[in-house]
Write a protein that binds this DNA or RNA. Structure first.
Lengths: 338, 338
DNA sequence: ATGAAAGCGCTAACAT
DNA sequence: ATGTTAGCGCTTTCAT
């Protein structure tokens, strides 16, 4: 890297002091128009670019917002990030992005890196492996604003944005019941994640309200993140003769469709399926996948808005938002004309 | 944000000088074991976290790698980013991520922000609107290592990573010809992007080598990024009675499948389809989508490796890599048993 | 084995 | 209207 042009260089070249140059550059009223013009001209010619490092050091904070997600590659998280970037950009912040890879150790490491970089605030969706939240508590104690999204926990009190998991799961299940399904299986997520629990509970509650007994044999846990796992678990579940499957996320649902069809059964005639996602691809499967629509991009925007409000001090109390989900009914779950 | 613990605080508390604390913290051999232990103990207790801002300012560079993509939300780009993060993380770098939103102005803005943050290097896939590359040339003149991926251009000489677009398109088209198709349509991309051009040329060359006349009426440009556009264009193309469609990307291909089927035609019997992507969802469509497999995650890794080699000075010459693509044949393009 | 001093680039009191 | 000074947190010569 070549030597960068600094304010000092400009000052020396123009026979001015660094402070005058600094002021001229930002249009301070005290500086004469003539000086301003000269300084700006040279700055432009030399392609002077302010050093954010120095600026941030001086201001004791950076213009970076830290984003910590399990996996960038997951469509859900990249959608959220997209929403975050949109809002952050508009507010003059940039993103420092880390992925934990669903690993606890890496998450701690990444969190430290964000703190070391003195990010202005942090947006978090923690890893599947994370069972204790001391590292987050420490960040909070430092006074760094932090907002959890999607994956939240009860162990630590933070601002958060989630979707209405219970409600979404409830409506999905109720819908399947209305379609005449009685043996509704559930592909559940990692049990220690609150989102999985809430979705599971929404499922159970819908069964209860409709007087359908809950059968543990119809619930399978898909800890993983591979479609293959949803596929395998579905194959297993089919032994229990379900007439419907409610999957806790997109990947699992897609595995389920394939599995059902590969086993020679029809979707939705033999097994109706509803997923939980926000995915254009859901319209591409045959049959098209019914799903609880998760507003991921929206989630990113809301999370970033809350964070920025806390960074600017505009809001000091913790904020928790629950975004509405709605059920999108497509061919995969329609057994009767409504 | 509360006051952060600094080396100075620790020094004062321990009756030492800042330099001694600094050295103790990093295990300098001159420092006595006893002092090291004391310093480290207090640092740990006070949760001292080095200030990357100060460090970077001193070292004249940050540990950030800038990533500039058109849209984070696109699966292709988030896959690439995932690969980048993997390699960058292992080398001790973090990501500063910007999305241009396919806008030229925003790209310039973002590029400036990256320069201002003194990122150690930049990975770029430029926006669809970008027709001149002066802003990139300037960054290069500053001596900031830069690697272009996927979308490269001829106007400026940089390191780059692309896939073998010509070859991929050639093989896809040849495959369709081998399946007996003769009226092969092409959903092309924005014509000023080199990737689109190369894919188009691979398509044309395959036709030529097989003695099939090129028919301009069978080529449509999908400038956009919406499936809807691929859908609409396909509907139009169907008037020309094609027996196959080669789509320049995933989104367009998916739109094409839907369009063909909605028009009452069968895939692949009436119209065979091959896409260009790296997408798990391609296995979910009915029929499953044949495609030229683009190694996106791999692309991110390779691009990051090249960049880091240039950052560390291990390699000074520009490097250009062309990654192999291979054709994955699935049901959407099989007309005869092979 | 430890300390003092200077400087990375920038800005905001506080002069003048 | 402009300059001087000091300091953000850290490291690194150069002392001692």
């Amino acid at each position: 890297m070549k030597t960068q042009v600094t304010i000092k260089h400009i000052a020396t070249a123009l026979g001015l002091s660094p402070s005058t140059v600094s002021r001229a550059l930002k249009g301070h009223p005290d500086i004469s128009e003539h000086t301003k013009a000269t300084v700006r001209a040279l700055a432009a010619r030399w392609e002077y670019e302010p050093n954010a490092l120095a600026l941030n050091l001086r201001n004791q904070k950076s213009n970076l917002i830290g984003v910590l997600v399990p996996r960038i590659i997951h469509h859900f998280f990249s959608s959220v990030m997209s929403g975050i970037e949109e809002v952050a950009h508009a507010a003059g912040y940039r993103l420092m992005v880390c992925q934990s890879n669903e690993e606890y150790e890496r998450e701690r490491e990444d969190l430290n890196a964000l703190v070391a970089s003195r990010v202005a605030g942090i947006l978090v969706s923690f890893s599947r492996e994370t069972l204790e939240f001391e590292h987050f508590a420490k960040v909070q104690k430092r006074g760094i604003p932090m907002v959890f999204f999607d994956r939240i926990c009860e162990e630590i009190d933070t601002s958060s944005v989630i979707t209405d998991d219970f409600g979404g799961a409830f409506r999905a299940t109720a819908h399947l019941i209305e379609q005449g399904c009685r043996r509704i299986a559930h592909l559940a997520g990692t049990s220690h994640l609150l989102i999985s629990q809430n979705r599971f509970e929404g499922y159970v509650e819908a069964l209860r309200q409709h007087g359908i007994p809950f059968d543990p044999a119809l619930v399978c846990s898909c800890d993983g993140i591979l479609q293959e796992e949803g596929y395998q678990q579905t194959v297993r579940l089919l032994a229990e003769k379900p007439d419907a499957i409610f999957a806790y996320n997109d990947i699992a649902a897609l595995g389920a469709i394939r599995a059902v069809q590969d086993c020679g059964l029809r979707v939705p005639e033999d097994v109706a399926i509803v997923g939980y996602c926000d995915w254009m691809a859901a319209t591409l499967t045959k049959p098209a996948l019914s799903m609880v629509m998760q507003p991921s991009y929206e989630m990113g925007k809301v999370a970033a808005e809350i964070l920025i409000r806390q960074i600017t001090g505009e809001e000091t109390a913790l904020e928790s938002r629950i975004l509405d989900t709605h059920l999108v009914v497509r061919a995969s779950s329609i057994k009767k004309a409504s």
